[in-house]
């Protein structure tokens, strides 16, 4: 009776999760299917398949430019966010200092903030201080939102770090720099890595902040939005699909690297 109703609940939850996973992937599948259609406008069921839009898209200068801009932005964001987020996480979770609780709440505010409003506020601010919209400005805008997230991600690793390891290293004769290089940094490395991965992917997919701040340097997502709301071209599904492949590839490579690291550690057993 009890176990039977429990089994029912369990199956229901599994089915429900399956439905949600499907729900998540239906539109992504839609984009990928349509990118292989031959006709200029998408019709389903697709009658003839072709990769001609891929050929065309991959040969276009535009594609290259869009991706290079997106890549520059995401790369810079990841790098800067990890460095600042690392120190932020130490203040967040490692040191016991007066003002820490206040700092924790303060630093989170940009996450809990409508991004469109944030983008616009940054645009006004840039205008006011005389910074022209460009991909560098977009990096700054992304950082405002992404640094708090990276700080949180790294903090989770810092919480699990036994501080007495640093003291032990110090007691064993290491100086401050050696303690940092030999103990703190390697112990927190997985957190820094996932922080960088998060930063890169969130920046790569961001639209509301880029649209206000990047000016003439269009990123992939901005271009898609502009073309979708006005002036359809058959390259939309293709570029969309390419960006899906890119995200999944980066996520997958990151996941594999993490697993490889864990394997290497396990090999020492």
């Amino acid at each position: 009776m009890e176990s039977r109703s429990k089994r029912w609940t369990k199956s229901l939850i599994i089915v429900w999760t399956g439905v949600i996973v499907l729900f998540f992937f239906v539109p992504i599948a839609g984009v990928i299917i349509s990118s292989f259609g031959k006709s200029r406008y998408f019709r389903f069921p697709v009658r003839s398949w072709s990769t001609k839009w891929y050929d065309q898209t991959l040969n276009a200068n535009l594609t290259e430019n869009l991706h290079i801009t997106s890549f520059y932005v995401a790369g810079c964001v990841a790098l800067i966010a990890v460095v600042l987020g690392f120190f932020g996480a130490l203040a967040f979770a490692r040191y016991d200092w007066k003002g820490r609780i206040f700092y924790q709440r303060l630093i989170m505010l940009p996450i809990f903030f409508p991004q469109a409003v944030l983008g616009l506020a940054l645009l006004l601010w840039f205008t006011y201080v005389g910074v022209l919209p460009s991909w560098e400005a977009a990096v700054f805008a992304h950082l405002v939102w992404i640094i708090p997230i990276v700080t949180l991600v790294i903090s989770i690793q810092v919480y699990g770090f036994d501080v007495s390891q640093e003291e032990a290293a110090f007691d064993l004769g290491a100086n401050r720099l050696q303690v940092f290089r030999e103990v703190t940094l390697p112990a927190l490395a997985p957190g820094l890595f996932s922080g960088a991965l998060f930063a890169f992917l969130l920046s790569w997919g961001n639209f509301p902040l880029s649209t206000y701040t990047s000016g003439a340097d269009s990123t992939v997502t901005e271009w898609l939005y502009t073309k979708m709301s006005s002036g359809y071209t058959p390259m939309i599904p293709t570029i969309g699909a390419l960006s899906v492949y890119g995200s999944i590839a980066i996520l997958f490579i990151g996941y594999l690297l993490l697993i490889a690291r864990r394997r290497r550690n396990e090999k020492r057993a």
């Binding site: 992504i28 992917l201 961001n206 992939v220 898609l224 999944i248």
Partner: peptide, 12 residues
Amino acid sequence: PLFVSENVRLFG
């Protein structure tokens, strides 16, 4: 999906 731009997914 979180890491695929929301514009792409909405287009889907």
